[in-house]
């Protein structure tokens, strides 16, 4: 929302940690390799298509919404990566598994907790190329999603330059120039910082990651277990970020109602049913209490 979160030290630490994790994966492969038989099939063209998909997911070209609300989601990315690698069913499965991490993902005020898109595109590609399955995909999704925030923060910082270029055009009354400054230079820059890293990560990373995961499975399964456990913890962040905006005032009890309707049904109540109950309760709440209690005012944003 209005407050712009400065990524500050957290971003640096996250970057360090994720670089460390990936470096560890990279070294774990060769060092622990016992049988040198990688069966990886990520061609340059496939890698480039994945890179292109990742760029598109951040780009405006698909009606805006088709990017951020479409290709950006690992569920969708997984399907397309699956098509690229010739196995849409497996791709969608792995994408869906990675998307579990980011179920409550919210981007607000120029801040993201992780990059679901790179986790979906590159994570699914590495998993498919390496013949890994969904739970290994989740492990990759955690590490890569963390790393992807570097691209987001770089973009958010550098793009400010183009706003000043737009100022110059405005000073000259150049309408087309102002318009162009919003879409052309930032997109060239975004293409460079998203397409190439993702392509290289898939092309060069596939054998390494396959080796690493296989060896971790053989020698230190607890690391993969750890990432899978993390997969059960991390959705809490997205949910908490959503709650930052809505968990307040008189509507707080509905969170517990939603939770315990699910608990009592053992998870058997479909999410659409929950939403319908929620909409009915919303109508009742507003009818009888109006908006008095929720005093939002964006204060907590």
């Amino acid at each position: 929302m209005m407050r712009v979160h400065d990524p500050g030290p957290a971003a640096k630490v996250a970057a360090l940690v994720s670089v460390g994790v990936l470096a560890a994966l990279a070294f774990a492969g060769p060092v622990l390799a016992q049988d040198g038989t990688p069966t990886v099939t990520a061609g340059l063209l496939q890698a480039a298509l994945v890179g292109l998909g990742y760029y598109l997911s951040n780009s405006p070209w698909l009606f805006g919404n088709g990017g951020f609300f479409g290709l950006y989601r690992p569920l969708v990315a997984g399907l397309f990566v699956g098509i690229i690698f010739g196995d849409p069913v497996k791709g969608a499965e792995i994408g869906a598994a990675i998307n579990l991490l980011y179920i409550g993902f919210i981007s607000a005020g120029g801040s993201i907790p992780a990059d679901p898109s790179v986790a979906g595109w590159v994570g699914t590609a590495l998993a498919l190329a390496g013949g890994l399955d969904a739970s290994a995909g989740i492990a990759l999704g955690v590490a890569i999603g963390l790393l992807g925030t570097i691209i987001f923060f770089t973009r958010m910082s550098v793009d400010a330059v183009f706003a000043h270029w737009a100022d110059d055009r405005a000073e000259r009354g150049d309408i087309t120039g102002v318009s162009r400054m919003n879409w052309l230079p930032p997109q060239i820059f975004l293409f460079i910082i998203s397409f190439f890293p993702a392509t290289i990560a898939v092309y060069a990373g596939a054998p390494v990651v396959q080796d690493a995961i296989n060896n971790l499975q053989a020698n230190a399964p607890w690391v993969l277990k750890g990432f899978q456990i993390a997969g059960g913890l991390l959705p809490a962040i997205g949910i908490a970020l959503n709650m930052r905006f809505i968990f307040r005032g008189s509507v707080i009890p509905y969170f517990f109602i939603g939770y315990y309707v699910s608990v009592l049904s053992g998870g058997a109540v479909n999410i659409v049913a929950i939403a319908i109950i929620g909409a009915a309760l919303a109508a009742l709440h507003v009818t009888f209490l109006g908006s008095r209690p929720m005093q939002a005012k964006g204060a907590e944003a």
Binding site: G232, I239, N242, F245, Y254, V263, G267, L281, A282, S291
Partner: peptide, 19 residues
């Protein structure tokens, strides 16, 4: 406020399903 009611219900359900 209505969106808050609905959103809280959904977040509660998601918590159980995914966390």
């Amino acid at each position: 406020t209505g969106a808050g009611v609905l959103g809280n219900m959904v977040m509660g359900a998601l918590t159980f399903q995914f966390v």
